[in-house]
Design a protein around this nucleic acid. Sequence first.
DNA 1: AAAGCAATTTAGCCTTGACTAACTTTGAAA
DNA 2: TTTCAAAGTTAGTCAAGGCTAAATTGCTTT
Lengths: 146, 146
Amino acid sequence: MGDKPTLNPRHNKAEVFARLRDAHAREVTEDYVEMISDLIHEEGEARSVALAERFGVTAATVNNTIKRLERDGYVTSRPYRSIFLTEKGETLAKKCRDRHQIVYNFLVSIGVDPDTAEFDAEGIEHHVSEETLRVFAAVSRADDAL
Amino acid sequence: MGDKPTLNPRHNKAEVFARLRDAHAREVTEDYVEMISDLIHEEGEARSVALAERFGVTAATVNNTIKRLERDGYVTSRPYRSIFLTEKGETLAKKCRDRHQIVYNFLVSIGVDPDTAEFDAEGIEHHVSEETLRVFAAVSRADDAL
DNA sequence: AAAGCAATTTAGCCTTGACTAACTTTGAAA
DNA sequence: TTTCAAAGTTAGTCAAGGCTAAATTGCTTT
């Protein structure tokens, strides 16, 4: 067991967990903008009913979340109409879609079953740092080359 | 029955997100039992003040969480005394510690910086399926052999 | 033994994200 | 054009997990 671990001065874990809590707070936002983007591409528009069905929650829950996303500047919406991404929302959606793809490809490339990879990627993607994402992408490319 | 394409597997994401929400609900519990276990091993006992310091939250928050863990059978505690893990808590702590180690070792083995790995592992560990965990362990072992 | 300080607990508040139930609006079929 | 089911909204509830402020307990030190 290594010598000189980061051990000591004060068990600096607090910051790790603080960042983890921040990441959690962003997860739902990221999942929603990504899904809204998917829906617009696949079905031409993003309706509440489709979001509710895909997330497995009620329409009321979707409504609450969309209000918050609107408050935070990620989407625009009008009563009884479909939902649109703002520039800010589009940007975040693209970043999330790319990241999801990298994590998914990585998992498959190291031998995880595609169905499992799809599920795990959905959870892991929110907790992968830029550095780790780069390593994932590099590993996938290396595997491709084989 | 004029079925809409609800059976299209592309759209069957609801299950994924439901399981994701379950995982999220378990995260704090897992982090706490793991930390309590660490404290008992490192300092001989687990006190609220140490948990608060390491998680970067207030004593009141720790108190709330410990009550919930007690309700759910993971710990025992008496007022103004230190906290103990039940059998159930010990079992979960061991599982989490092992899983954390596998994820951490895996990240380092593919080239992620140890500090980054430590942070990312803390977030990723809660979202890794049994299958992916096996793959991670296998990859680490393969790298060791080099 | 009493004081004082640190640790813990309690009480009250907040946001997120979930729910049900009831209501309103839209849009399409009759 | 009327009607009515589906879609969306609103209101009220709940648990988790944060917070602050204030009260309480236990320990250590005079």
